[in-house]
Design a protein around this nucleic acid. Structure first.
Lengths: 204, 204
DNA sequence: CGTATGCTCAAACGATCGTTTGAACTGGCC
DNA sequence: GGCCAGTTCAAACGATCGTTTGAGCATACG
């Protein structure tokens, strides 16, 4: 059905690559199916349309990512409130792990593009399917930072989100050095991100 | 020549609007010229190609923005070193003012799209034409935060940049409320951004 | 074996894209 | 008026887009 080498999976992987490189409009179905080594008509046969293919590219990664995030959050809020660092870690690390496994980094670029698109259809899709995750984390932040007004809290979460999106999509100038292992680099990134986010959220 | 109602200016404004709404690929020259109320061929006559039109859209805003930034930076570093807040303010406020004047907010969305594109041509253009501005601010931050290693400083600047881009391009959920004047909202935004950036840059 | 089902294929569809062309129009200057 | 450079115009160019079609192939089941 969905074996790794199946037509559907090969289309999804090629789509992720080309959407990341050239954007949703910029990547044509002809380039895409050539890259995937499948027939042009296969996209419309398996997915119905290019737009539905885009949706599936998101689903494949985000379902796993957000499940992972909620699981991590549940761990640290199980018996008592977790610390701010722990809650942030539950939010950051699953994304970082995704962005370093296989072609996950490509997907992060796709996600960043989607944010930039400001496309209402896509934003609604993200909100409907994954909004509850963000709400759960926001509620946790509110408990951990009771001194902040609602306004102030939203501002800070908003700015932290910007920093995270930026860092995780690889916009920045920071690159892994040759003498640092991938895992060490991820750990470094996670720590920088977490410390930065803690400072941004909880400063007086 | 370049009067506000000239064909060239009307094309540039329509381009800014449609590039912000639909992206560089998504906005066609036919939509664009119809919106501007000019003939289809006018774009290629006045700009040479669609790609060169894109470049001019950037030049029109970024020349002014970065000149403004450097002027503000010169003010606070004139006699003695400015404070971290002052230097950040020199970086943030010109962008905020641009994003609140006329259709400047549209341009900020265009800019955010460009970042997401990861297009090397465009990135090279930005680096060649405006890279010296970023270098000058980075040098100032290095002077003001001598306790940070080069690595650590770059990390923090990178994350702050993400937050600023995010906030200034209007991704976030923060919206001006009806009972707050535009200028008051800009002032509020500037203060949130600056305090957040200070915390992110200078935390222990 | 026969046939039904799921999938792949080459080919074509109409639409839309960026760009080019050559004629028509505009204003100022001799 | 007559000319000329600058600009606008409708029309067309070839290329490429997403999608559809109908024939052909494979595999599994009666």
């Amino acid at each position: 059905m969905n074996s790794p080498g199946s037509t559907k999976e090969r289309i999804l992987s090629a789509a992720e690559l080309l959407f990341a490189q050239r954007g949703f409009d910029g990547a044509s179905l002809r380039q895409l199916t050539t890259t995937a080594g499948v027939n042009l008509a296969a996209v419309n046969y398996h997915f119905g349309s290019k737009e539905k293919l885009v949706e599936q590219v998101f689903r494949r990664r985000l379902d796993a990512l957000n499940a992972h995030r909620l699981a991590e959050l549940a761990k640290v809020t199980g018996n008592e409130q977790g610390t701010l660092e722990e809650v942030l870690s539950a939010y950051i690390r699953p994304a970082l792990e995704l962005s370093h496994e296989g072609n996950g980094a490509l997907f992060m670029r796709v996600l960043a593009r989607a944010f930039a698109e400001h496309d209402d259809t896509l934003r609604q899709f993200l909100s409907e399917n994954y909004g509850h995750v963000m709400r759960q984390f926001t509620a946790e932040f509110a408990r951990l930072l009771p001194q902040l007004s609602k306004d102030e809290l939203y501002w800070r979460i908003d700015l932290v989100t910007g920093a995270l999106t930026h860092a995780m999509s690889g916009f920045g100038m920071i690159q892994r050095k040759r003498d640092v292992s991938e895992e060490a680099h991820r750990e470094q990134t996670a720590q920088h991100l977490t410390r930065f986010a803690v400072a941004g959220l909880s400063h007086p």
